[in-house]
């Protein structure tokens, strides 16, 4: 029961917040709505037993990405109070496309989730031997990340360095 209530509250926040992000006229309010959506998504992660991921989401999305967004908004509004009013165009096309995508995803989701519900992999994963006695989400996450997923993990760090240097070079003012 608790999960049902929590799910619907979070889903409501997500959908309303997302609608505010795409239809709002004040860019800064859009950013704040995005913060609400991101926090609610973190709540959904907790609901699904992904505590570590949830707090990583808050730390990275809300603490870092959203701050970048707010800074970009402030810098692009000439610092002083020149407010940009957002204009939406091609609303009909956008609505049609969004409905189409949603219909497709919902159809696939419902049919597939019915199809896959009973079908779970019965092959014993060899990585389980490493996770013997692991009792917390964090331990399992870290063990998996540093054993089976070590290559993507290292690649992600290189990727982040590339992105960092790239962003610095792009945003730097010319001497």
């Amino acid at each position: 029961m608790g999960e049902v209530i929590a799910f619907y509250i979070l889903a409501l926040i997500i959908v309303l917040g997302a609608l505010a992000v795409v239809t709002g006229r004040n860019l800064f309010h859009c950013g704040l709505s995005l913060a609400a959506v991101l926090l609610a998504v973190a709540g959904l992660f907790i609901l699904n037993g992904a505590e570590f991921l949830a707090w990583v989401q808050v730390l990275i999305y809300v603490g870092a990405v959203l701050v970048i967004i707010l800074y970009a908004i402030m810098l692009s509004e000439n610092i002083t109070g020149e407010r940009i009013l957002l204009i939406s165009q091609n609303r009909g096309v956008g609505f049609a496309a969004a409905t189409l995508v949603f219909a497709l995803i919902a159809f696939l989701g419902i049919s597939l989730s019915g199809l896959l519900a009973g079908h779970t992999s019965s092959v014993k994963d060899p990585v389980l031997a490493l996770l013997e006695g692991a009792d917390s989400n964090v331990i399992v996450f870290g063990t998996l990340l540093l054993t089976r997923y070590i290559l993507p993990f290292e690649f992600a760090s290189v990727f982040l360095v590339i992105a960092l240097i790239g962003a610095l070079v792009i945003a730097r003012t010319a001497e």
Partner: peptide, 29 residues
Amino acid sequence: LNVGVLYLLSISSVTVIGIVTAGWASANK
């Protein structure tokens, strides 16, 4: 919580948004 330290970090990083919002919303240099 078993993610205690991460929780502390992520929760305190939300403060930044509040402060930036306060600065922006006041419409004052």
